[in-house]
């Protein structure tokens, strides 16, 4: 009986370690310098700040909004790549399209935003 419990406990510990390791790998995967460079190049910073008020929501606000949502990355990638209609002070305009064709680079930017 004790052997079974110990084996269950071991499995749980192993599973938790794996999840922890995956999360930490994911967190480490964000190349902050590259993300900030692409954000600047794409003029994101003209309307968005990391934490302060500008015409667009701060990255922290976006990160909070999408916290725990499975489709967060996909939604934001689509948002950046397609230039959807947005409203600023009630006036509709097209969102700037990210200045990159490299999916990995765009994904890195999205992960950067979501990790703020």
């Amino acid at each position: 009986m004790n052997t079974i419990r110990a084996s269950h406990l071991l499995k749980v510990v192993l599973a938790m370690s794996c999840v922890g390791a995956m999360l930490s790998v994911q967190a480490q995967e964000v190349d902050v310098a590259a993300a900030e460079a692409l954000a600047k190049k794409s003029n994101c910073t003209k309307c968005h700040s990391v934490s302060a008020k500008k015409d667009g929501p701060a990255y922290k606000v976006t990160a909070e909004k999408f916290k725990g949502k499975a489709d967060a990355e996909a939604t934001l990638i689509k948002h950046l790549k397609t230039g959807p209609k947005i409203k600023i002070d009630g006036v509709e305009e097209e969102h700037q399209i990210v200045k990159s064709k490299d999916d990995a680079e765009i994904k890195n930017l999205v992960r950067y935003i979501l990790s703020r």
Partner: peptide, 18 residues
């Protein structure tokens, strides 16, 4: 009010407008 953090890293916290 809008052009902050353009020559240096943006600090973490509310901006000039707030």
């Amino acid at each position: 009010d809008c052009h902050f953090g353009i020559a240096h890293k943006e600090p973490d916290g509310p901006g000039p407008q707030e």
